[in-house]
Computed example of a mutant assay.
Amino acid sequence: MASSRGVLLYGPPAAGKDTITEQLITIGPYTHFQRLKVGPGRTSGYRMGTIEQLTSLRERGQVIYENQRYDSAYVVDRGELDSIVREHEQVPVLHIGQVDAIHAIRRGYPLIWTVVMVFCPREEAEKRLVERNDARVDERLSVWDETLAEADLALFDLVVNTGAFEPAHVATAIDWCQRHRQ
């Protein structure tokens, strides 16, 4: 039986989305949805693609959500979600940083979505970015500001300051919310 549930992890850069997802994977049938990325920069956590692949997805109506950031295109596509949900019967965990993405994904791929906002103090985000040797600290902090400014708390089932809680505790809370959503 295919999964009918999913998790949207909304948050700014360095909020802990990767770490929380790793913890979720250890406690349940969760898997990280790796967005298709076309462009330069970080490759970890993405399925790298070409402009031709992106054009084909667009032409076939497979793009659920697409955004442009850091000189790259980032895509949530139907085929990868179908693979996770229908073929592997896993609960997809999507990392997003735009409110528009929440609406587009809910509308474009109807699952029972648990929507979680994760954040940490800006100083903590900066420290995390420096520790991971990020080449775009200032740009990512600007995105951090934008992401939190556009957040509408009414959209979220859970809001967590990752600077105040251990990742395992955050994952447990998300799992509980996800399992009790109707």
Rank of each mutant, 00 (worst) to 15 (best):
M117L: 15
V170G: 04
P110M: 07
I102C: 08
A104Y: 01
D145T: 12
T50C: 10
A173P: 00
C120G: 11
R106H: 09
D71H: 13
S72T: 03
N133A: 11
V63I: 15
M48R: 07
R140F: 02
L36S: 06
C177V: 05
L141F: 09
S44M: 08
F156D: 02
I102G: 08
R107V: 06
A135P: 08
R122Q: 12
Q62V: 01
V115I: 15
H32R: 14
E80Y: 10
D134I: 03
H88R: 15
E150F: 00
D157H: 11
V85S: 13
T31K: 09
T147V: 15
W176I: 02
R122V: 08
L148Q: 15
S72P: 02
I174S: 01
L94V: 15
A151C: 04
T50R: 07
M117T: 04
S44K: 14
P121L: 08
G97Y: 01
V170T: 15
K37H: 11
T43Y: 03
G49N: 05
Y65C: 03
V130M: 08
V93E: 05
L81S: 05
M117E: 12
D77P: 00
H103W: 13
H103I: 13
Q90V: 02
Q90G: 03
D100F: 04
L81W: 01
H169R: 13
V170R: 09
A151R: 04
H32I: 05
E59T: 12
R47G: 00
Y74R: 09
V63H: 05
D100S: 14
Q178K: 04
T43P: 00
F119V: 08
E126I: 01
H88G: 04
N67W: 07
Q62H: 10
A135K: 06
R42T: 13
G41Y: 03
E124Q: 11
E66H: 05
A171T: 01
L94D: 11
R107W: 09
C120E: 05
P40F: 01
